[in-house]
Structures are given as structure tokens and as C-alpha cells.
Design a protein around this nucleic acid. Structure first.
Length: 416
DNA sequence: TCTGGGGTCCTAGGACCC
DNA sequence: TCTGGGGTCCTAGGACCC
């Protein structure tokens, strides 16, 4: 972690990532519109974007807009390798790299400037390294905050670099449409426009209470802060995945109850395997469901203890699915009424399998702090001083307070 | 052309505890 | 007995991101 006033942050973003990899590997595709993915557009080259093709667009619509485009099947393993190579280049410049996705990351280069030169220089070197070593175009935004660096890289695309001068941040930001802000999607944009807010400057000038009134307390405050370039979030190179999941779109064919159960079982097996491979356990299972009317439903259950066992996770997912397809009126009743076009599962509440649970009982005269101290000593004795524990007080049994729910070696330390 | 697959974070209400 | 505030955890749903 690192973030200070005067920090220098880069947002590095590969241009049209999947499509660029295809153009790199097949010279015939260079300079031509390329669409990756047939059913739905996963990525498209800038030549295709000029025809109006966008990612997530339906494939048939994309081909209509851009009839001469070359459509290629995605090659996920190749993209994963390319991503890995690019991130290795990032780490050559700083250890403070926070991945956002396969093709995007924040880099805190504050301490790297005396090694590699000023930030704009680092950004230029980064782009050269990625282009020469991996063969992919990279856009970079440079600023003092994460969010502004992200906005800058968006403005720098394609294949560009944009350094927001610390003295001119608001001059850069305020004329831009509110849609450039991270967290403003279609719904929020419409609400803002309805209130006469079209640019980031409009947002900065509006009252916090007004914004919170129609966006909610968090979003209202957050967006207004961003409009004033207030973004204290540090570049976090130690982020861990919070959840892990898989889903399957099923098209329009009517599915039977048993088909859906098999589908969910296979998803559960797949994600459980990933969970074990990542050496993680999960505590909450969620089953997601999409009806023929494209409505989303979900059911979730939190287990008493985190696990990585396929059997338990799959059985839980199955029960949750049955709740969705049966409803209160018996087997398949709800399914018959609403149909199903997608099922998915998510495991969340992820933790390390070596996290432990300790429960200690207060001695009659013991004080809570003494018990906590003994627990901390116990934990350190077993796992070293680097271990982190969380503890809380729970319950009275026969007048004797008990300590429960200690646990989670990688959770934050709290006391009291 | 009926619309993929992988995630993150927030909200609101209810249960439960002190 | 009644009222209630503060806090956490869980669930369902929604917005948003790449």
C-alpha cells in the first residue's frame, strides 16, 4: 500500500486488448476491423469501433454495422499469457501495482521517479517496453489520484499518453461529461441529466445534500468528491479476490428442472476446483438466475464454516436453485411460470484455509482484555507475529460471558 | 440478433444482541 | 413493562465495471 499527498499514479490500459492480440498474431488483420467473439462482441479493434461496433454488443448487430469486419473466435489462454507478460513489465517499474482486470492496472510510481525519471518519462518507457516486448499498444494516464489517472488514460486512447498537470486538474476535469466518472453508468447519468447536470463541473457546483437526495448518501458524496478531484484511495498491491463465480447463458430454449440442476452442479464443480487451486475457502454460496423477461433473481446462504469441498458447495447450490425453480408451489412451479435464460453461482466470503476459529470462555473473574491478550499470544505462538486476528465478544451463558467468533487470520484486527 | 462471462460495491430490511 | 439506540450479520436486489 502506498498513497500520500503528491503521489504520482499511472493508470495503464491496453487498447482493445483481445483484438490487439489478434492483430499482433495475424498480420493480415492489421489495419482491418476485427471483432472478437461471434455471439456477443467481447472486444473489437479501433477500425471496428469507427463503424459503431462496441464491446458487449450483439454479434449480428455488429456484423450489420461493419459487414467487412473479420470475426475471430476468442483465444483466452493466449490473452492470459499476454496479460501476464504485460504485468511483468509493470512490475519492472514499481512493486505498487494494483490490477483492475486482465488489461488494466494502477501503478504508484511515486518512489520510482528518482530511478526512472519524471512520471511522464516513466509512462513513456512503460509504453515502449510493452510495445517492444509484448507487441501491444498501451495507453497511460498520469495524475495525482487514481480516478483522475483513469479518466486521463481514457482520454489518451488509443495508443496515447496524458499527463494531468497538478496545477490544472480541475481545468481538465470540469468540461468533461459526467459519464467519464468511474461509477456513473446509464442509470446514474440519466438521474444527473434530469437534474441539469451534464458535465463534471456541473456536478462539482451542485449541493451535496441535493445529490445525496436522489443518488443516495454514498454515491452522492462520492461523485461530488470525485468532481473536486478528491480521491484518497491508495494503490493497493495486496488486494485479494472477494468472490469467485461462473455463469452460463442458456439461450431461449425451455429448460427442465433437471437440466438446470445439472448445469448448476457442473458450475459448482468448476468453481470449487478454481477455489482449491487458488488455495481459498468460501463461506457464502449464491445462485443467480435470469428469467425469460430478463429479470434477475438470486438466493444465497452463508455456511457455518468456510469450505472448499465440492460436495458441500454443490449441495448448497442445488438447494438454492430448487428454491428458485420450485417456489412455494411445488417442483418446477416457479420455473414453468418465469422460464430461465441464465444460471450462475458465486462463492464469496473467501478466506485462507489456514484461518482458524478459537473460542475461549471467560474465567469467572477474567477481564475481556486479558482473554484477548491470551488469544493474541496463542495465535502468535502458533503462526508467528505476522498473523492477524479478529475477535469479538458474544453471549452470556449462566452469567459467564463467553468469547466467540475469534478467527480469520487474514481479517483486519479489531478489538473490543 | 433477443442480449457473454468475470467481477466489485452499495442499499435496505430483518434478525439478533447488548 | 415499555421503549429504544447502537451494532453486526445475513439476504435479496441493483448499479456498475471490463
Amino acid at each position: 500500500m502506498s498513497a500520500r499527498r503528491g503521489a504520482t499514479i499511472l493508470h495503464a490500459d491496453l487498447d482493445a486488448f483481445y483484438a490487439s492480440v489478434e492483430q499482433r498474431d495475424d498480420p493480415r488483420l492489421r489495419g482491418r476491423p476485427v471483432i472478437v467473439g461471434g455471439g456477443v462482441v467481447l472486444a473489437c479493434s479501433y477500425e471496428a469501433k469507427r463503424c459503431g461496433v462496441r464491446s458487449a454488443m450483439n454479434g449480428a448487430q455488429a456484423r450489420l454495422l461493419c459487414p467487412h469486419a473479420v470475426v475471430v473466435e476468442p483465444r483466452m489462454e493466449v490473452y492470459a499469457d499476454a496479460s501476464k507478460a504485460v504485468f511483468e513489465r509493470f512490475h519492472d517499474f514499481t512493486p505498487f501495482v494494483e490490477p483492475i482486470s486482465v488489461d488494466e492496472a494502477f501503478l504508484d510510481v511515486t518512489g520510482a521517479e528518482h530511478l526512472f525519471g519524471p512520471a511522464a518519462e516513466i509512462a513513456a518507457q512503460l509504453r515502449t517496453r510493452v510495445l517492444v516486448d509484448v507487441g501491444l499498444p498501451l495507453s497511460v494516464g498520469v495524475a495525482r489520484t487514481k480516478f483522475l489517472a483513469k479518466v486521463a488514460s481514457g482520454q489518451a486512447k488509443p495508443d496515447g499518453i496524458l499527463h494531468v498537470d497538478p496545477g490544472r486538474e480541475l481545468d481538465f476535469l470540469h468540461p468533461l461529461p459526467v459519464e467519464v466518472l468511474w461509477g456513473v453508468g446509464p442509470v446514474t447519468a440519466t438521474k444527473l441529466h434530469d437534474h441539469g447536470i451534464d458535465t463534471v463541473g456541473d456536478l462539482a457546483r451542485s449541493g451535496r445534500a441535493d445529490l445525496q437526495g436522489y443518488l443516495g448518501p454514498h454515491a452522492g458524496r462520492h461523485l461530488r468528491d470525485l468532481a473536486h478531484n478528491l480521491d484518497p484511495r491508495p494503490v493497493d498491491n495486496a488486494r485479494r479476490d472477494r468472490s469467485m463465480g461462473a455463469q452460463r447463458a442458456l439461450g431461449n430454449r425451455i429448460r427442465t428442472r433437471d437440466e438446470l440442476r445439472r448445469e448448476v452442479l457442473s458450475l459448482a464443480e468448476k468453481v470449487s476446483a478454481r477455489l482449491r487451486k487458488a488455495d481459498r475457502v468460501a463461506r457464502t454460496v449464491t445462485v443467480r438466475y435470469r428469467t425469460q423477461e430478463m429479470k434477475h433473481e438470486s438466493r444465497s446462504r452463508t455456511l457455518v464454516e468456510p469450505t472448499q469441498q465440492t460436495g458441500l458447495l454443490a449441495a448448497t447450490a442445488d438447494e438454492l436453485l430448487l428454491d428458485l425453480v420450485d417456489g412455494p408451489h411445488g417442483p418446477g412451479a416457479a420455473l414453468g411460470r418465469k422460464g430461465c435464460t441464465l444460471v450462475g453461482i458465486t462463492f464469496s466470503g473467501l478466506g485462507r484455509p489456514d484461518a482458524v476459529q478459537l473460542a475461549l470462555r471467560f474465567p469467572e473473574e477474567g477481564r475481556a482484555t486479558d482473554v484477548l491478550d491470551r488469544m493474541v499470544d496463542d495465535i502468535r505462538g502458533r503462526w508467528g507475529t505476522g498473523a492477524v486476528a479478529r475477535a469479538s465478544l458474544m453471549g452470556h451463558t449462566g452469567g459467564v460471558p463467553t468469547l466467540a467468533r475469534p478467527t480469520a487470520l487474514d481479517a483486519a484486527h479489531t478489538s473490543g
